[in-house]
Structure formats: C-alpha cells, structure tokens
Design a protein around this nucleic acid. Structure first.
Lengths: 168, 168
DNA sequence: GAAATTATGTCAATAAGGCTGACATAATTT
DNA sequence: AAATTATGTCAGCCTTATTGACATAATTTC
C-alpha cells in the first residue's frame, strides 16, 4: 500500500504535459496588467473595478434596464445595488422609468459618466493599440476570433448586441 | 454658466469614439469564462482562485522561493501567507529549506498538488484548444504575441523564465 | 564577533466585491 | 382580485486583497 506521499516533485509541468500553459499564463498576465490601468484611475474617484464594469456597459448600451445589466454582468442584484447606487448618487448614471413598463429603470450615463467611461477606456485602448502595432494584418481578426471562441457559446449572442461602429 | 448636467445621454459609445471597445469586451468576457472552469473545481476543495495561482506557479517553477513567488504574483506576503499555509497544511505543497541559504523556503508540489494543478488546468486547456480549433495556422502565434505585448514590458522577462516545453 | 540586513512568518485591522436569504413596494399580467 | 414581475433594501457571510507592526532565524558586513 502507498503511504501518504509528501515527497517534493522537482520537475516542472511543461507544454509536454499536454496543456497549453503558455496561453493560460499569457492570459493571466495580460489581463492583470490590462485591468491595472483603470484600477489606478478608479482609486482616485473612490471607485473599484465593479463600478467600472457598470459604467462601461451603461455607456455601451444606454437605456438598458437593471435586469438586463444583471444579465450582462452575471452578478446578483445585491452586488450590483451598492455600486449602482453610488454611481447614481455621485451623478455618473441616471435612472429613467421605462416608457412601457414603469417598474423598469432605464439606465443612462450623464455627461460626467460618459467622460469617466472614456477616461477609463483610454489607457486600455492605448495598451491594445500598442500591442497591435507589432501585429501583422489579420492578427486583430485572429485575436478577436480567439477571444470570442473562449466565451461560452450561449453568451456570444449577448456580445453581438454591443454596438460595433457607426451608430446613428 | 453651466449648471450640473444630469441629462441622460441616449447614444452609445461605439468604435467610432476611437476606442477598441470590442477587444476590451472580448477580453472581459473571455477571461470571465476562462476562470469560471477552475473556480467550480476549487470550490469543491474549499479553495479559491488565489490557491489556484499559487499551486499553478509552484508546479510550473518547482523549487521557487517565497520571495520569487511573491514577485510573480505581485501580491503582499500577508496575502500569500494564508493560502500558502492552507496548501501546505493540506499536503499540496511542501517547503524545503534552501540549500545555500537556509532562511529560504523552496516550494515544491507533492503528487497530490501536481494532480490538482493538472485537474485545474485541464478545462482551461480544453477551452483554449476548442477556441483554436476554428483558427487558421499562424493564429496561435498571433494570439500569443498579442497577449505578450499586452503585458508591461518589464514583466515580460519573467514570462520567458517559465518552462516552454521539453523539460528534462 | 557584534551589528546590520535579509527571508520568512504572524498578528490585527481594513476594504472591495462577491454571495445568500428575507422581505417590501409598485406596477403589470392573469 | 390575485399572482407575478422589476426593483430595492436589510443583514450577515466569505474570499482576497491591503497596510503596519513585530518576531525569528540565518546570512552578510564591518
């Protein structure tokens, strides 16, 4: 019988073990630095990453309801409540009663909220553009295809609803 | 003079605003689902994402010291302490006094720790491979180049130290 | 050899951002 | 009129991070 084996293993896991450790780690490091940019700005406003996400999607989908926002963020009503309340109290987001269903609250950014959303997006956009500078034609499409394919299939339609350009 | 302007803005931010919102959102959704896989497994063990990261890098760089691990994870000693202690107490990681400097603790996975690291990596690897199935030749390289370029330049040498394949 | 530095560990307090469960209100639908 | 829906709120809990302070052992420096 084997006793409990707490012998140290001295050989590393490598790509030979059949796992894409390189991509796994690239994603980890990339995402960490990607979020560090806005985090620093948010701290000046007394906000956190949760505020960023709410502000971002309200700016990208103005007029979405609380339920729709919860569906995009995949968090609970109670988790959203605190950050949304702060953003409203501080004048970054306004609520408008739904036109058909007056129980609903349509969420819109104010000019202040739009400005902050842009300020937060800028360093991220700069980082992305710098990363793509060295890229060859077709790489951008390849990266977007890959990232999209990494998302659970049932959530991909949701991504397609986000405005892609030339909004009127 | 302008009064406080809390008028709702009804037009969405789009790519026309000069920001790569598509890539920003792709990264957000992709990373969320990418981490959801191991999170579910970790919960069964009573662990969290922090345990995963520690276990991962100890398996990828067996024998690294506490200081080196802190340098990779970029968290504080106190944050590491709790999760590392649990992983050691539960027999996933063992400490070995450094051979030259006996103050140092070299960290190694046990067989149990190696097994869990693989179990956590597998769904992530499966997701990556599925995403790359539709990819054309050269796309993998493009994705890795992009993700690497998204990392702060000063941290890239650290990524290169991770074993790339064919370990002996 | 004594003193300073270094590697690690630990204690206490704090904060952000999640969670669950329970309950309230108003508006809509049945 | 009753049931359902959309939203809000209260209370408590968990994980993961933070800072600051201090302790111990080992190494390095003078």
């Amino acid at each position: 019988m084997s006793t409990i084996d707490d012998e140290p293993i001295k050989t590393p896991l490598t790509l030979d073990d059949g796992v894409d450790f390189a991509v796994i780690e690239h994603l980890f490091f990339a995402y960490r630095d990607f979020t560090a940019d806005p985090d620093a700005i948010l701290a000046e406003y007394g906000f956190g990453r949760a505020h960023h996400r709410v502000l971002h999607f309200v700016n990208r989908l103005p007029g979405l309801t609380v339920a729709e926002l919860l569906d995009v963020l995949r968090i609970t009503k109670q988790s959203l409540a605190r950050v949304l309340k702060q953003l409203i109290d501080d004048g970054y987001i306004v609520q408008v009663p739904g036109p058909r269903d007056r129980r609903q609250r349509e969420l819109y950014p104010t000019q202040k909220g739009r400005d902050l959303a842009m300020e937060l997006a800028l360093p991220q956009s700069r980082r992305i553009r710098a990363a793509l500078e060295e890229a060859e034609p077709g790489d951008v499409a390849a990266v977007e295809r890959f990232l999209r394919a990494m998302v659970n299939p049932e959530l991909r339609p949701q991504m397609d609803k986000l405005p892609n350009g030339r909004s009127k």
